[in-house]
Simulated scan of single mutants.
Amino acid sequence: MLAVTACAMQSSSRKQRITSLADVPDLPGCIATGASVEEVEAKIKTAIAFHLEGMREDGIKPPIPQSRVEYVEVAA
Rank of each mutant, 00 (worst) to 15 (best):
P25A: 01
I64Q: 06
E38Q: 10
D26T: 02
V37M: 14
R68W: 04
I44R: 03
S11G: 12
L2F: 14
V40M: 01
G54V: 03
E70K: 15
L21R: 09
A75G: 14
K45M: 10
G34R: 01
T46F: 06
S67V: 02
L27W: 07
M9H: 08
T46M: 08
R17A: 14
K43C: 09
A76C: 13
A3Y: 07
V40W: 00
P63A: 03
E70S: 14
T19D: 06
V4C: 07
Q66Y: 05
I44F: 00
I18K: 11
R17S: 13
G54A: 05
S13V: 08
A32T: 03
V40E: 03
V69T: 09
E38F: 10
D58L: 09
K45A: 11
S36Q: 02
A8Y: 02
C30L: 02
E53F: 01
R56D: 06
R56N: 07
G29Q: 04
I64E: 05
T5Y: 11
E38H: 07
V72R: 15
I60Y: 03
R17P: 11
C7I: 08
I64L: 08
A32P: 07
V4M: 13
A49S: 06
V40F: 03
E57S: 15
E38P: 12
S12K: 10
A35Q: 09
D23K: 15
I44G: 05
L52H: 03
R14Q: 12
K15M: 12
K45I: 09
A75I: 12
E38T: 13
S13A: 13
A3S: 10
V69D: 05
T5H: 14
V4D: 04
G59H: 01
A6P: 08
E39F: 04
K15N: 13
D58Y: 06
V37N: 14
A42D: 12
G59Q: 00
G59S: 01
R14G: 12
I31N: 00
A32L: 01
E39A: 06
Q66D: 07
L52F: 03
D58E: 06
K43E: 13
K43H: 13
K45R: 13
A76H: 11
K45Q: 15
P62C: 01
C7F: 14
Y71W: 08
S12P: 11
L21F: 00
I44K: 00
A47L: 00
A75N: 15
I44C: 00
I18W: 09
G29K: 02
I60A: 06
F50E: 14
Q66L: 05
A3W: 04
A35F: 03
T33Y: 02
I48R: 01
T5E: 10
F50I: 14
D26F: 01
E57I: 07
P25L: 00
G29F: 02
C30F: 02
A22Q: 06
H51R: 15
A75Y: 11
A75M: 15
C7L: 14
Q10C: 15
L52C: 05
I18H: 13
L52G: 01
V72W: 06
E73M: 08
C30E: 04
C7E: 15
P25M: 00
A8K: 08
